[in-house]
Design a protein around this nucleic acid. Structure first.
Lengths: 419, 419
DNA sequence: ACAGTTTCCCGTAAATGC
DNA sequence: TGCATTTACGGGAAACTG
């Protein structure tokens, strides 16, 4: 009969940042016979908090009660809150308990209560949110969102706030679908089978299968061997790069993105000189690079990859313009652009032409100046080839993760109805 | 006997931003005979505020009282506060009064009080700050700082908070000294006579003299004719550009900076081809450009200026590297750098060599990529020459504005001492 | 509608705490 | 000491307000 609905961070609901307002909505799903008094909703944070379960306590700094109003759209009773959350600085009571958990693994909840008296009946309504993660800084968002994803993928008990005490593993079939879905919600384009296979190999090693189990720590807590970041932090940095700097290019499907260096060479080897593909950096967070093939006079293939471009550079120079203007300088010669065909054989300007930044060259007393990304070539960097791979397939379709999309709404429970 | 001292924004004391903490220090200048009780200081904001004088009211959100402590350095009694300020949202009482004034022209003050009882004497101590300006956003900082400068340059009544009701004019002699001093506090280099003359002409027209009067509105309130910003906002944008992106270049005296386009040509006309000078943009806020001369086969001089570089570009590519790598592309030819000699005749690399960014070219599988600023040259932009100018002179020395430097301290007043 | 002003909040840097 | 976490706040943009 009551339905709380919530939108916090646009892309990442269920994550709340202290000091940043978030919106909650509660709706009464049944239509009441004309009530002659006001129905008041009260919000409580961590109402049924199991004692000692969480290491941090929070309180709502804004109004916690509100009278329900008729919704403009469908006329049902509705209350919308703008809440703010602050940490209760209690003398480290339960602190250092469960200190193995990150704060991003600590689950909280919002409860909504209303008391209704009508026709001699006394009804208590109560409902609560799906588990929430509270963070204090944006750098904690990737970890927090990983928790939300993991919980909603694997838990069948919405009230189980101790979930991350011993989180169950996911199958690669489940997880890969969620990952592809992340790309769908951040862009117009999910992941295809090749891309998913590359991610699977990265996470589980070669010859992994859909039924293989992925452990929570391997997904989000432990660093990738030899790297200072976890698998999810790496992948999320790419989602952010796409969302902020590569949206048109990614949506056009021009970024192969997830492809091993070995496969990259296999693909490019027998293509025309100047054929290139775009992929994300595996060594640095949020980086994209292009690799092109060049055939020598002897027919031998040379592969070159440019140092990955990251957000700081891409905010100065959009990626299509980089591709358009990139030059290689060989001493004393006129610089040339080695990028001719987007893999497999699309002429560069045909693919990217519409994305170029056509600077209007306003008539002014100054000479316009453009940034040209350039590489000086002396020695050629060649590394060993590797095994071939499967052929493309359409991206996965969203599955049970619909609920995490856009206007995420909680299911509603009437917890208590007496008299 | 008591001395309040204050440091808020490092470069701009006496300006307080709501929601950002600021530090105040009060010192007792006399050494008391060993007191056997604690001396408590109380801070009040706008204590003796003339009714209806200000349109906004503020209050201190932090502790306003503190017990004085022996200072580590010289052992005198001292209290240091970390204060925060917030606007009192009173039902627009005195609002819209004096609405001709900007909030950055509204002066406020901090008062400090202490009560001392010793040897049968009852002494009330009180002192207050120089006028303060309260802002709510960093974009108000230039306007606020203009007020602080103008007040301290021209007022002889530290308590006259209505100063901007009818602010007196300054002579160009006074103002130009203050302006040069701004460059000294933001860098290691003030302004020389040519630079000051150019600023004077910009503000007062040609043939201006040291005794000419500059009005407050012309300095900071009215926009420069044809530009969407005032003289001071323009100059302050350059101070910020220097501080954040050009410090070494400016400190080496390599930036002529303030030079009219006419004078620029006079200087460059008979110099060798490739001689260039650096100056700030007059049309855009916080921009720097270079102009170089090129002599054709007929000996005719051509002048070119590149589109000004601003902070967003300079944070990606440092200015010395721009000068080092700048290229002009004439169709089909090898790009060349037209910048050879820094005016009058310093070989470019001799001047800027030590400031170049020597990228370490770490051994990695990627090919490093550099940004090269390039201009495509088709038509040459030439504009009319103009009158010659004086010769260089050393920068002005700081004058009465010492007090505004770094560790700014208020003078102290014992306002009241009874019994 | 608009300009002056404040609020909001991202993202980085510094501070804090364990 | 190092790492996890929070606080601080500059700066751009949206929201507010007369």
């Amino acid at each position: 009969e009551q339905q709380p609905c919530m939108a916090t961070h646009p892309q990442k609901p269920l994550v709340i940042k202290t000091g940043v307002q978030f919106v909650t909505k509660v709706r009464l799903l049944v239509k009441l016979p004309a009530v002659d008094y006001q129905l008041k909703v009260k919000t409580t944070f961590d109402k049924d908090l199991p004692p000692g379960r969480v290491s941090r306590q929070f309180f709502i700094v804004t109004n916690t009660t509100k009278v329900m109003d008729a919704d403009e759209v469908n006329g049902c009773l509705c209350a919308e809150f703008r809440h703010g959350l602050k940490e209760k600085k209690c003398g480290n009571s339960a602190k250092s308990k469960e200190s193995l958990l990150f704060v991003t693994e600590e689950l909280h909840s919002l409860s909504f209560e209303a008391h209704l008296t009508t026709q001699g009946l006394n009804i208590d309504l109560e409902t609560s949110s799906l588990p929430l993660v509270v963070i204090s800084n944006g750098i904690q968002m990737p970890g927090a969102w990983a928790s939300i994803m993991w919980f909603n993928l694997l838990s069948h008990e919405p009230q189980n706030l101790g979930f991350f005490g011993s989180p169950p593993p996911a199958t690669w079939a489940q997880l890969s679908e969620v990952l592809s879905w992340q790309f769908c919600t951040n862009s117009a384009q999910g992941l295809n089978k090749e891309q998913i296979d590359m991610l699977g190999e990265k996470l589980l090693g070669q010859h992994c299968s859909n039924s293989d189990q992925v452990h929570w720590s391997k997904f989000s807590k432990e660093n990738i061997p030899g790297k200072p970041f976890s698998f999810w932090v790496w992948l999320d940095s790419i989602l952010e790069l796409i969302r902020k700097h590569l949206l048109p290019v990614w949506n056009q499907n021009y970024i192969m993105g997830f492809v091993s260096k070995g496969k990259e060479r296999t693909l490019l080897r027998d293509k025309e000189s100047g054929t290139f593909l775009l992929r994300f950096s595996e060594s640095h967070l949020g980086g994209i690079t292009f690799t092109w093939v060049q055939h020598g006079d002897d027919g031998e293939a040379t592969f070159n990859s440019v140092e990955p471009y990251t957000k700081s550079l891409l905010s100065t120079l959009p990626f299509p313009d980089i591709i358009r203007n990139y030059k290689v300088i060989s001493d004393g010669l006129v610089p040339t652009n080695p990028l001719k065909f987007l893999y497999p054989d699309i002429p560069k300007d045909k693919a990217f032409g519409q994305l170029y930044n056509n600077l209007p060259s306003k008539a002014n007393p100054y000479i316009p100046s453009t940034l040209i990304p350039c590489s000086e070539m002396r020695s050629s960097n060649v590394s060993p080839p590797s095994a071939p791979c499967d052929s493309p397939q359409p991206p996965m379709t969203p599955g049970e993760f619909d609920m995490l999309n856009q206007t995420l709404c909680f299911d509603m429970d009437v917890m208590n109805s007496a008299y």
